[in-house]
């Protein structure tokens, strides 16, 4: 394509409004946080905050929780999302209705659904215990939100339920962008279903899987609303992610610079993840 000056101008014009918006709303606060993390009460203190961060037991524990949370919930969402997308791809009676139902969890307000989940997991009046008891899967009501491991299970369940539709939508769009001719061509060569899936579907879905992976991971790293409502970080801090600790540090302890330090750390963490994903999964062809 000819790289004329006009083309450059046109391109710049196209991205200008977004540019301004991003600079104002996103960049400025981030820069401010960066500066804050190196200061204490308006005095420059270098990397003291970061050193404190690495000695902070509560931070280390919240980091562990966040990583564990991502490690379990994200692959689960990708897998389920793929399965659902494949099924929704088929033409069948009531497909429209099924598709709408599958989008539903994503559409419901997070904080409100978290309150609902809290009630579902209640040990006395909760539906979850009730069903399990009736099905004889458990003998006594379990305190789902009261025991660390069970509570962790609950937050993952709530997250997977809410966020899998996101993956489903993206993968569905991806599936629908695959030209049917490719399948016809390869069937002529005698490929069976599994081979078709492996040789055409999966590779062509890669960019979409990558998008889903990156966005889900980043959003999981910053998870806040649902956990705050569901467990408040408990029991005993066993479900507390980084963002909850940041919230407490800034708004309850009023330690702004230390809070900024934590934020910068999680930013770097997210960057590392994105970098790793792109390095190992990014397809040159689709890169822009």
């Amino acid at each position: 394509m000819p790289k004329s000056f006009d083309e450059q101008k046109f391109g710049l014009l196209l991205i200008l409004p977004s540019f301004i918006l991003l600079g104002l709303v996103a960049l400025y606060p981030i820069l401010r946080n960066l500066i804050l993390s190196f200061t204490e009460n308006d005095q420059f203190i270098g990397i003291k905050n970061f050193i404190l961060l690495f000695q902070d037991e509560r931070f280390k524990s919240s980091l562990f929780n966040t990583l564990l949370f991502c490690l379990i919930s994200v692959p689960l969402q990708l897998f389920l999302g793929l399965v659902f997308a494949l099924i929704l791809q088929q033409r069948f009676f009531t497909r429209g209705f099924v598709r709408t139902s599958v989008f539903l969890p994503w559409a419901l307000p997070t904080a409100v659904m978290a309150v609902a989940w809290k009630w579902i997991f209640n040990d006395t009046y909760g539906v979850f215990n009730d069903i399990l008891l009736r099905l004889q899967i458990i003998k006594e009501p379990l305190a789902w939100l009261g025991k660390p491991d069970l509570a962790f299970f609950c937050i993952i369940l709530a997250e997977v339920w809410k966020c899998t539709p996101f993956v489903t939508v993206i993968l569905l769009a991806g599936l629908q962008s695959i030209p049917p001719e490719l399948y016809e061509a390869i069937s002529v060569d005698g490929a069976n279903t599994l081979q078709r899936f492996r040789l055409i579907t999966l590779p062509l879905l890669r960019p979409f899987l990558l998008v889903a992976l990156v966005f889900r991971t980043i959003q999981a790293l910053g998870v806040f609303d649902s956990i705050w409502v569901l467990t408040g970080g408990g029991p005993g801090g066993s479900t507390e992610p980084i963002s909850l600790y940041v919230y407490d540090t800034v708004f309850r302890y009023l330690k702004f610079s230390y809070g900024s330090t934590m934020v910068i750390f999680s930013f770097i963490l997210s960057l590392i993840f994105v970098f790793i994903f792109y390095k190992f999964w990014g397809d040159r062809q689709i890169e822009y």
Partner: peptide, 11 residues
């Protein structure tokens, strides 16, 4: 009850 570790006022 053990579930007391999940109770707030309303529960």
């Amino acid at each position: 009850p053990e579930g007391v570790t999940t109770y707030e006022e309303e529960e």
